[in-house]
Nucleic acid binder design. Structure first.
Length: 153
DNA sequence: GCCAACGTTGGC
DNA sequence: GCCAACGTTGGC
């Protein structure tokens, strides 16, 4: 089993939204970055666990855990001219973008802020979130980092 | 709202 | 293939 981190803006779609979806499940559409797509399409398997990260908000940080319940399939919102992340270069015969389905698992007992994570950067040498200028919205989390972070909880 | 960092685009 | 211009991300 592998571990991941996914970023989301709580004002747009946060952990609360995921928890309130039918089956507490939603498709993770809108990823329009090749590296992030490759992680989703080539890496994510059913059962993989995800750190749910809130970005672009007052206190950015990890707030909960989700899991992969459906492996990558074409992101149909890319075909829809009215969709926010419409991409005319993606066509149904040769989709450029993919999404997975994720399901709410649990909220953390307390949020672990980006600031706090930075204080542990020496113990998280391979954690991409802490790398300068990182903008990936989907990234792998090592088993070591996963364990270390959840021990902070 | 600012701006650094980064990815993408497109002219050449 | 280079690189300047531009758009986006996301912390602050």
């Amino acid at each position: 089993m592998a571990y991941w981190l996914m970023k989301s803006e709580p004002d747009v779609f946060g952990l609360d939204h995921l928890e309130q979806m039918p089956n507490q499940t939603e498709h993770w559409d809108g990823v329009r970055n090749y590296q992030a797509r490759n992680f989703m399409r080539d890496g994510m398997k059913v059962g993989d666990e995800i750190l749910f990260y809130h970005s672009n908000c007052k206190v950015p940080g990890i707030v909960g855990i989700a899991k992969v319940v459906r492996e990558a399939y074409p992101d149909h919102t890319a075909f829809d001219p009215d969709a926010k992340y419409y991409d005319p270069k993606s066509d149904p015969d040769k989709p450029r973008w993919y999404m997975v389905d994720v399901q709410f698992v649990r909220r953390l007992k307390r949020n672990i802020s980006l600031q706090e994570l930075k204080e542990h950067s020496e113990q998280l040498p391979d954690f991409p979130l802490l790398r300068k200028g990182n903008r990936l919205s989907v990234m792998p989390v090592s088993e070591q980092a996963w364990g270390y972070i959840l021990d902070l909880e």
